[in-house]
Nucleic acid binder design. Structure first.
Lengths: 221, 221
DNA sequence: GTCTATAAGTCGATAGAC
DNA sequence: GTCTATCGACTTATAGAC
């Protein structure tokens, strides 16, 4: 009954079981089930079966269906963060152009061709009318951290002299997300072709160009 | 069986019936049905009933289910264009800042709070895995024209001196689309608040700033 | 397997304009 | 009469009940 109504996003009591990553196994089973059935039609019983655990075990790791789904989103979107190559301090010390190229490249690498993730995103967007909290979990755990990291970068990097950091973050990240949506999720590659590197370079020129005299420094990578 | 497999986007034989806009009536009924049931579960019979016409009449206006859906998308997304205030020539003669403000404002006005359109977009994204051609129809009829108009502007406006026009178009439009997705479709207003005018101004500063000395011309609107 | 319900798409008849 | 928009009834396919 507590279906997506309260803060199921917050970290839950995760009992420190033995060495095997049973939570991961459950998440894998849940992924299959959510992908196959959508959110509403997904059955906790089938998730338990798919994961090879009992229902009580399932509920000892995740409070409810909503909490399980939130954890799934977190796992997939935090993948962007745990494997990024640069720490915040480094990002501030490198030239802005290099930091942004790094972030854009990693973002696109993490997204391109990831069919399971696309399926999950389709599901979240598709059900965002009926299940607003589902979408909000995605915003909180996926988009917000990314935008905050970018805002911090734009607010504190010495190369950035003008511009609203939060808006810059939205434009940078939003352009990338829109690119992925158009090319991959909505299958627009053939209708609106756009090479990946051309897009990245153009986007970075747009952002960095604000503080650059045309022709002053074109050399990069 | 021709379910979304061929060019159902192209204009169909539209018999020039009497003065009453029966096609519009059918589209309204189709909208209700698609919104209520999604694409796959939508029934042409129920659409006919909702529209108050017989099934053969329905098929005399639209080739098949896919063609009907494509027409629906076209109607909603072309709404963006038919009501825009400026022609291409005007856009090239005004200062770039003003043209972009115009486009951004109209785009956001046309999207903000439009629940039926959001429902349709959720449906398209949600079914884009199972029905790629559905999504491609949206890309062809909705996104492509907008991006082409912007590319033309960025390619030909005298204020634009550097930058890849097609990438600029994607960044400008992509930022706006991502803003709408986050704030409205995914219900992120409270999680990531961002005032509309602040966003528009920041976005335009980013684009126009490429060719502007900071502090030279802040006065606008 | 059989039966029923409901789906997409088609055909011959009807009713009015000229 | 012809022409055209329309509709009731039809065919075929499929998915689920039993």
């Amino acid at each position: 009954m507590s279906d997506l109504t309260d803060g199921s996003d917050k970290p839950q009591k995760l009992p420190k079981h033995k060495e095997v990553d049973k939570a991961g196994v459950i998440l894998t089973g849940a992924m299959q089930e959510f992908i196959k059935c959508g959110y509403a039609a997904a059955s906790m019983d089938r998730i338990a079966v798919a994961a090879g655990v009992s229902k009580p075990t399932l509920y000892s790791y995740f409070r409810d269906k909503a909490g399980l789904f939130a954890a799934l989103i977190q796992q997939m979107t935090q993948g962007d963060r745990k494997s990024r190559l640069l720490e915040n301090d480094q990002l501030l010390q490198l030239p802005l152009r290099d930091s942004l190229k790094q972030i854009a490249t990693v973002s696109l690498d993490k997204l391109s061709g990831k069919q399971p993730l696309f399926t999950l995103i389709r599901l979240i967007v598709g059900e965002s009318g009926r299940f607003p909290a589902l979408a909000q979990t995605f915003v909180r755990n996926g988009e917000k951290p990314m935008l905050e990291e970018l805002s911090y970068l734009f607010a504190n990097h010495p190369d950035v002299k003008v511009g609203d950091p939060e808006v810059l973050a939205r434009c940078f990240h939003g352009s990338i997300v829109h690119y992925i949506i158009l090319q991959e999720i909505l299958h627009g590659r053939d209708i609106l072709p756009m090479e990946r590197d051309r897009f990245i370079n153009g986007l970075i020129d747009l952002i960095v160009g604000s503080d650059r005299v045309p022709g002053a420094d074109m050399g990069n990578g």
